[in-house]
Design a protein around this nucleic acid. Structure first.
Ligand code: ZN
Length: 425
DNA sequence: CGAATTTGACCTGCGC
DNA sequence: GCGCAGGTCAAATTCG
């Protein structure tokens, strides 16, 4: 079935967009106050099975996806390995799993779930929740060293400006958005482009070590293109012909053993296949983390996450958030690296001006993976002051051209803001 | 033989 | 305006 009459060109489109919002809010720091309300985002990211549409707006129950209890976490192997080895239960069903299909069955399964089944998913979920807290802390820190007041954090009662598209980020399998009624007769590209022009798109990427060219994530994908060197492959979800979800797969330029899988427009218009639920939940969680107010500053910034002081034994995930591209991307780095030595375990630096995020960063700099190339240890202690942070960032810039580009964007935006506020000096 | 992949053409957006 | 990069399309080819 041809999706369009001819390739790539301008085509007539007739698209109904249910959730149009301006594009500015996530990038422009002046709109940092308009970060979406966390609760609303979480609700929308994981709608309960009872969700139903009324006049185009989903009616949602409140769900707490970031539980406050701090349960020690076990080591969690890399994502691909778990999937490969079948150790990620395909039928994991937690409060995040809200599929409309087989809800009775899932109730039973929930009762039957043993610790083994839920452990991996719960670990990942809690890690991301912890990252969220730390990202918020980092944002405050960055605002401080920028000489700006810390923007209000999420959770305030102002959901007027929630990017409506984020209501579509669907981890539970219940279609929130009706399929575009007019997709027949115009290509997915046209539909996507129409939406792109009006709504914010969040991408969620995984970095993981994998020899396979594709992570078995439980979805059905069809390859529709390949570009560049090293090659980047383009896939789209083929569970339904109208589903707009795509993913890109490429090898890391610096380390060919690392596979980067990026999920785009994560709003399937169909129920989740059971095998895909772990992946879907993590993607949704990561997206809601981004949307819940963890935006550090304007421009672009890479954040490196550490273990949480509350959960020092948790294997860390390095998380980056990029704003420099047209679409912000949350990257979860699931490549493994060694545990930090005890001095980097929490409570790390109780008097430190630097959020605990950077203790991991410093450790990481001290213990670089061989694949990352030679990198001189940058600090012998945790970064107690912004100077240490600056040194670390400098090393990262030297090590990673992409980081340099991101940081340039950050600096530019800070300078332009300072000029606006301070009269151009 | 139908489904999936490959691959060159084509389009859009962006920087210079 | 031009060139480049990213992304998509669809005919041709390969695969099961
Ligand atoms: Zn889909």
């Amino acid at each position: 079935m041809p999706l369009s009459s001819h390739g790539g060109g301008p085509k007539p489109s007739l698209t109904v967009d249910f959730h149009r919002v301006p594009k500015q809010s996530l990038i422009d720091s002046h709109h940092v106050n308009e970060i979406p309300n966390k609760r609303a985002c979480l609700e929308s990211a994981h709608p309960p099975s009872s969700t139903h549409e009324q006049n185009g707006a989903a009616e949602l129950r409140e769900l707490d996806f970031f539980p406050r209890e701090n349960i020690p976490l076990r080591e969690a192997p890399a994502f691909a390995n778990l999937l490969k080895e079948g150790r990620v239960p395909s039928d994991v069903n937690t409060d995040l799993q809200l599929s409309s299909t087989g809800s009775e069955q899932s109730m039973e399964e929930e009762n039957e779930m043993d610790g083994e089944k839920i452990s991996w998913f719960e670990e990942a979920r809690r890690k991301i929740a912890e990252q969220n807290k730390e990202l918020v802390a980092l944002r405050g820190f960055m605002c401080d060293i920028n000489g700006r007041g810390s923007p209000p954090l999420s959770g305030e009662d102002d959901d007027d400006l929630i990017p409506k598209r984020m209501h579509d980020i669907n981890g539970g399998g219940t279609p929130i958005v009706p399929p575009p009624p007019t997709i027949n007769g115009c290509s997915r590209e046209v539909v996507a482009r129409e939406e792109d022009a009006n709504v914010e798109e969040v991408r969620v990427a995984f970095r993981d070590r994998s020899e396979a060219s594709l992570i078995p994530d439980g979805w059905r994908w069809r390859k529709y293109g390949q570009k560049g060197k090293p090659p980047r492959s383009y896939y789209r979800c083929t569970i339904t012909s109208t589903c707009l979800v795509r993913k890109q797969v490429q090898r890391c330029a610096q380390d060919k053993s690392i596979l980067i899988t990026t999920y785009i427009e994560w709003n399937h218009d169909h129920p989740l296949p059971p095998a895909a639920m772990p992946t879907a939940s993590i993607i949704s969680e990561a997206a809601s983390m981004f949307l819940s107010g963890s935006i550090p500053i304007s421009g672009g910034l890479i954040i490196i996450n550490s273990t949480s002081p509350m959960m020092p034994r948790c294997r860390p995930i390095m998380t980056t958030i990029s704003f420099s591209a047209r679409c912000p991307t949350v990257t979860l780095d699931l490549t493994e690296y060694p545990d930090p030595p005890p001095q980097f375990h929490a409570p790390a630096q109780p008097q430190s001006a630097v959020p605990p995020l950077f203790s991991r960063l410093v450790y990481y700099e001290q213990q670089p993976r061989t694949e990352r190339g030679a990198m001189a240890p940058s600090c012998s202690e945790g970064p107690h002051n912004p100077d240490d942070v600056a040194r670390i960032v400098t090393d990262l810039i030297l090590d990673n051209p992409k980081f340099k580009i991101e940081m340039i964007a950050v600096v530019k935006s800070i300078i332009s803001e300072a000029r606006q506020q301070g009269g151009g000096s």
